[in-house]
């Protein structure tokens, strides 16, 4: 439950080495490398077109990168390059130890299936499923994402944007993944709904010891969610470090510009 502290020789959960994705001659992302340790939450920020979403999709295996390694510390076999895994292995990882929270939420939900069915889907992939147990787990997870369990049989299309996002989070976390990829988790939500979602994500992350990689253009979101930050521009990493240090004492010209461009309230 408590994040492990100060262990210098801890194995990174994820090692990204020289990851490059080109779209023809145009750079998607180039030579991105970093290590993510268990329990760490990393934010990736940049403007539209900076390559942050390309990077996220390349890491998660949605778009095959042209070059590089994405090494994950698997439960069974230790660190493995997920890009060299067979497709069944990678998809299995995507259903168990990895989770991907899409934006908009409807991209990560089955809109014609009830809330309970959405949460239960990952559980039903394993043999000999038990309806009562799946339903109990679905109800429990609805509670954890602050949705009344009286909504368990409602379809997500009847939910507000914030509820859809919380449902998507429940659907992803139900199998207890160790690494969560998030694409603009608060995107498209009202400010008041964002705050609740951020608080929820902080709480769940702390309880489950989750590691996460969060792509967003919203610096306020990463300040509240991320331990560390990577700033991207034109497909390259321009700066990285402790989140509040990068935001309060940016070293690179572009980061200074990005930080000073945020409207103060």
């Amino acid at each position: 439950m408590i994040k492990e502290v100060g262990a210098q020789d801890m194995t990174p959960l994820l090692q990204v080495n020289s990851l490059t994705k080109m779209y023809g001659a145009r750079i998607g992302c180039k030579d991105v490398s970093f290590d993510l340790y268990p329990g760490e939450v990393m934010g990736i920020v940049g403007e539209s077109g900076s390559g942050k979403s390309t990077l996220l999709n390349a890491m998660a295996g949605y778009h095959a990168p042209d070059q590089g390694e994405v090494i994950f510390d698997t439960r069974a076999d230790g660190p493995q390059d997920t890009l060299k895994m067979s497709e069944p292995e990678r998809r299995m990882l995507g259903r168990t130890d990895w989770a991907f929270v899409h934006q908009p939420a409807r991209d990560g939900l089955r809109m014609s299936v009830s809330a309970g069915g959405n949460i239960g889907e990952r559980l039903m992939a394993v043999g000999g499923p038990h309806y009562g147990e799946i339903r109990a787990q679905a109800a429990d997870w609805l509670g954890r994402v602050e949705i009344s369990d009286s909504r368990i049989d409602d379809r997500p299309s009847a939910f507000s944007g914030g509820m859809q996002q919380r449902l998507q989070i429940a659907r992803n976390l139900v199998t207890g993944p160790r690494l969560v990829f998030m694409d603009e988790p608060t995107g498209g939500l009202d400010v008041s709904v964002q705050a609740r979602l951020l608080d929820l994500l902080r709480g769940l992350g702390r309880e489950m010891g989750l590691s996460a990689i969060i792509v967003t253009h919203d610096l306020a979101v990463v300040r509240l969610l991320a331990d560390r930050l990577m700033v991207m521009k034109d497909g390259h990493e321009v700066e990285s470090g402790l989140t509040d240090q990068v935001l309060d004492d940016p070293q690179h010209a572009y980061t200074q510009l990005l930080v000073s461009s945020v409207l103060q309230v």
Binding site: V5, D199, L242
Partner: peptide, 26 residues
């Protein structure tokens, strides 16, 4: 590395200023 500073902040080093930076509405 960031994770070591985070751990140090969590376990060892507190910081209080006149500014509060937390999730709104909590």
């Amino acid at each position: 590395a960031p994770r070591h500073i985070i751990a140090r902040r969590r376990e060892t080093l507190g910081y209080v200023s006149q500014f509060l930076r937390v999730v709104p509405r909590v």
